[in-house]
Amino acid sequence: MSHALAFIETSASGEVRNTAAMLIAAASKLGTPVAVVVAAPGTGDALIAELGELGAAQVYVAETDQFGSVLVAPQLAALEAASAALQPSAIVLAHSIDGREIAGRLAVRLRTGLLVDVVDVRADGDVVVATHSVFGGAYTVEATVPGAGPAIVTVRQGAIDARAETASPTLTTQSITVDPASAAVIDEVHDAVVATDRPELRGATRVVSGGRGLGSQANFALVEQLADALGAAVGASRAAVDAGYVPQTSQVGQTGITVSPQLYVALGISGAIQHRAGMQTAKTIVAINKDADAPIFDIADFGIVGDVFTVVPQLIEALGKRE
């Protein structure tokens, strides 16, 4: 069986990002999974146990003192070197901000095709087949990369639930340097410190989102309270983001995150087509809006025409009583 590379993202301090499990699982469906990771000199060994736990058969560590100071170029060089050494049939990355930039450049550098934002992968003989979910899930499209080079695939974060079996990986360490003049330089990293206990929006099984109908940043706390009562992630409409109630990273929709949870609760959201594009594949949709004609009701399994400030507190209380 040929190799399939999974590119593992890390934080500035070297911790493995939570997309790793999904990516190694995706790679294991396409070949022998090799985790490729960039690390500061001497820190790579520490990652082996964790990546083996997630199913990597081999760990390819590219060590460089440019880790954390040069944007994406070391990661690109690492994948280029691993690809030359292992001749993989596929290279799988997260469809994250960094993942996209690395994948795009790598596809041009290796002169191979690119399949982006896929929600599943499978091998059909030697051919990598990727599934896309398009226009908010209105269409499912399958696509392949014919030809010799490895298929480069970016996987939507949280889209693949399967996990690979634990392995005891072999280790390859390679040292790399890139020409900093041809890359962007990182001046400062501000990793968000506000780590909450709430589930992450991407891949969440329950999401409670709030819109302009909440009226203020202070009132938006109601959305968070319901989210906590349901153990859900917090989302928002673009209008709520533009009004400053929540950061852009919470935006659901066309130009925000696409979610596909078991339960999606929309509070004070009208249901503009661009918002629906990010949530309409949810299993069950609940909407509370005081306008009976709001378009969100067209796709809601349970709609309440009412005021969020009276319905939601009652719901939270009822949920509390059931526990």
Binding site: S11, D187, V189, H190, D191, A192
Partner: peptide, 9 residues
């Protein structure tokens, strides 16, 4: 901005 915070570049 990325999934985890922001970087100045």
């Amino acid at each position: 901005g990325d999934e985890h915070g922001t970087v100045s570049v």
